[in-house]
Write a protein that binds this DNA or RNA. Sequence first.
DNA 1: CCTTGACTTGACCGACCGGTCTATTATTAT
DNA 2: ATAATAATAGACCGGTCGGTCAAGTCAAGG
Lengths: 200, 200
Amino acid sequence: MHPETDTRSRILAVARDMFHGRSYADVGIQEICDAAKVQKGSFYHFFPSKRDLALAVIDDMADDWAHGFVAEAFDQALPPVERLDYMIDAAYYWQKASADLEGRMPGCLFGNLALEMSTRDDVMRARLNAVFDKARDKFRATLDEAVATGALAAMNTEATASAMLAYLEGIILLAKTRNEPEVILVLGPAIKTLRIEMSH
Amino acid sequence: MHPETDTRSRILAVARDMFHGRSYADVGIQEICDAAKVQKGSFYHFFPSKRDLALAVIDDMADDWAHGFVAEAFDQALPPVERLDYMIDAAYYWQKASADLEGRMPGCLFGNLALEMSTRDDVMRARLNAVFDKARDKFRATLDEAVATGALAAMNTEATASAMLAYLEGIILLAKTRNEPEVILVLGPAIKTLRIEMSH
DNA sequence: CCTTGACTTGACCGACCGGTCTATTATTAT
DNA sequence: ATAATAATAGACCGGTCGGTCAAGTCAAGG
């Protein structure tokens, strides 16, 4: 029985929220420590650097995301095409909740970090890219199923899955810039119209 | 007649490139001054603050963008639907050029700033939002024309235009995260499949 | 009991941040 | 010529940045 995990996970949780709601560069370690009620020394006991903390935050969030949002949104019980609508709804309610609570839309943590850090840190970029690849695979599996059941005509499911992920990130970006979660609701359903044909 | 010093525009140009290739927070004023061969005092003679510089950069880029990239990409001589393909190509070549030159994809300055600053600075968010609105209007005019000429069936052109803009930003985000401009070429053409029907 | 090692504390570091200030030099209007 | 003003120069400021470090505390294992 260690109390060890508590400190580390508190830092992680606080950092995640702060990075998500603001940005990597804008959040300082001292601020994180204060919010997590931890001293600088303890912080550096668990994380070698701010960058490593960000990497850990990405992994942590990706994990939660895969087992929470994604697992729920891509509900296997639903017909594949309906899953897309369900996922859009889930994205909306998530952003809406944050907007109501904090007065502003945080957007997608991965998208935020990707645009902020991709040109500066290749390791972080690769990590974020891997998260996107996993998300794309979820889309892809859904599309494959829809094609298999005949709900959708044959297509390039991998490329279309990437397109859908891009569209999702795009509408979240636009909604965040407008600070109106409803943008997700209005534009979201059009994700089903995206199609990339198979190349022959 | 002023000495027509190019000091201000040198600062603007340097800051634009740096903000675009890195991020707002990551670029310091001293660094901008060094690169522009200008002293701190001169900088603060022309710009009250770093934030005001960013605002000026947005305006400057939006202007260049409207008269350069957009005016070219949305070539009125082309049939409306082909304009979309042409625009995707233009986006690709622009990013490709930067990637070849600097070894990395800067992405879209507006999208970058939007995700970094939207939750921190409402004025900047509004400014970015206005730029996006203008871009959407370009899409919308193109769609309206396509509908008028019968090239496309009637639809909600305003919402579809927003969707296309979101998709464009999304594929640029994804391409930047992969550091592969080609992603724009592969996913881009699917922008034409996006459709949001008119609400009755 | 004593050692070990994970964990915590908080003072401290140099570098750099955005921004201010005074002094000086060009340029223009009178 | 002179007064006013635009522009430049660069030292300087308090504060914060990410990160270090020596000195502990404390629980488990021998």
